[in-house]
Nucleic acid binder design. Structure first.
Lengths: 267, 267
DNA sequence: CGGAGTTTGTTCTCGCGTTCACGAACTCCT
DNA sequence: AGGAGTTCGTGAACGCGAGAACAAACTCCG
């Protein structure tokens, strides 16, 4: 998900050639490949030689048709009437994603979350190697986390250059995130995984993915609220009925600038 | 995103009535509302009274048209020629998501990630109150994390019942996740945020959202690999050229079951 | 060797989400 | 008061992804 790709009109190339752009997987498919990969690893550990698309489907919680279509994008691995060779397919997916090579990763911001990320075994086991833990707070420097020492943030450029780091993780507080990202990009990082609750602005060509823990909870809360709008067991009974969206005409005065309530909130 | 909603045919109700289902926001819109909310909070702290859709757009990294369409789903707040009243809109979004009420939350699995989640201030400031930290490991019991004591996992049912917990977080290792989820559902939890790299199977009516840290990195790795397929600077020069997807006919023997490579991997 | 069973790969259709474009409504300036 | 400028809300077009259905291809059994 390249950040802010400018709207590009339809390519008016009429010939069948594919100028430059190889092909590219659909984003939705790409997001599922790691899930397949994990299931295949499980199957491989169970000494399973082959598996059908439906087997993979139940293991990963998607439909069989989706599995087949996703895998067909990688090429025609799999054999009709038999299924997919587990080890072979696993390798093909890993290669397609880029997991057959070793990705050095830098983590910046070694707070609670940074600790967790530094020690997350799921990274190492998938070709990602955390090569440095950086933090701006001098108090944290030298602290040992997951077998590594926390280093000053100013080491960023050196580490990125020496280790050829392309992927970095931001786990800092929100106010620092943009500055950290700028320094990363300047140093040569071109993919950023951002855990800070802030929107990052990066130049074209740099990918940013954002993971926001509280956003996920808020989405759950919405569905939860809709499940049982009646049994409001916690808090004072705020009898404010959810105003139906269909009562048109009722909302003639849309601008209650008089005294808009503002409950306290400290981010 | 209700897990495994059975394929439902088009509702053949021809009348205009909306039987039971109120309306429901589009999922894509819902996912962006928390982002708008955060931006509005920032604006409110800066004493900004009103803002336009384009202002909100640049702050949140989406397009202005999308912002307007999203907000129009909530109702016609906003004034033409002026924009949106920051405080008012903020309250409306919060109410729609369900953030005006207090959500008690239980966190299970107090490892590295559980620590981070327990101490995450972004939860408390958005109406989520962590009421219990549970872990199956007796060694962790009594440990103080973020001002709370870690309690035995068997306290789950009691806490859920007493505090009317509907939303829970799983931060356990993958093998334990399904069991934990089952216990949660049986206890009355109906929304689960799952950080364990495992696919959970839950009955209808229970929402599960999954956050997989390594999946995000893998998606970044894919894009990164495509950016520079040539300058493979790390690792031995594996000269395996990415086989173009178009060499049809070449792959006549799709079943290399002879010796499929299997690099070591420990999950 | 041939037919039945199985499973993949592909095509078609449908719905959702995004984007564009434009009327409606409000403010500000003269 | 009136016109110019601004901004929301919404209808229409478009593209992507999901789902169903089916032909092709492989195995197994007699």
């Amino acid at each position: 998900m390249t950040a802010r790709r400018p709207a590009r009109p339809a390519p008016q190339a009429a010939d069948g050639s594919d100028p430059g752009g190889e092909k590219g997987l659909p984003e939705a498919t790409l997001a599922r490949l790691p899930v397949y990969l994990r299931a295949l690893t499980t199957l491989a550990e169970a000494e399973t030689a082959t598996c059908s698309s439906d087997t993979l489907a139940t293991l990963t919680g998607v439909t069989g048709a989706k599995v087949r279509k996703d895998l067909s994008h990688l090429g025609s691995y799999g054999t009709r009437g038999v299924g997919y060779d587990v080890a072979y397919l696993r390798y093909q997916i890993a290669r397609e994603i880029g997991l057959t090579q070793d990705w050095p990763v830098v983590v910046v911001g070694i707070g609670n979350l940074g600790h967790a990320l530094a020690g997350y075994s799921g990274f190492r086991s998938r070709g990602f190697r955390v090569v440095a833990l950086l933090d701006a707070d001098p108090e944290r420097h030298g602290e040992e986390v997951a077998g590594m020492r926390v280093r000053p943030f100013d080491d960023l450029e050196g580490v990125v250059a020496e280790q050829h780091v392309k992927i970095a993780v931001i786990a800092t507080p929100a106010p620092a995130a943009q500055d950290v990202a700028d320094r990363m990009v300047a140093a040569g990082v071109s993919s950023i995984l951002n855990f800070a609750p802030a929107v990052l602005s990066v130049p074209d060509g740099v990918d940013v993915r954002k993971v926001d823990l509280s956003t996920e909870l808020q989405i759950l809360a919405y569905h939860e609220q809709r499940k049982a709008p009646a049994d409001r067991l916690v808090g004072p009974a705020d009898g404010v009925p959810v105003p139906g969206p269909g009562d048109a005409g009722e909302r003639a005065a849309p601008h209650p600038a008089g005294a808009p309530r503002r409950e306290e909130e400290h981010a």
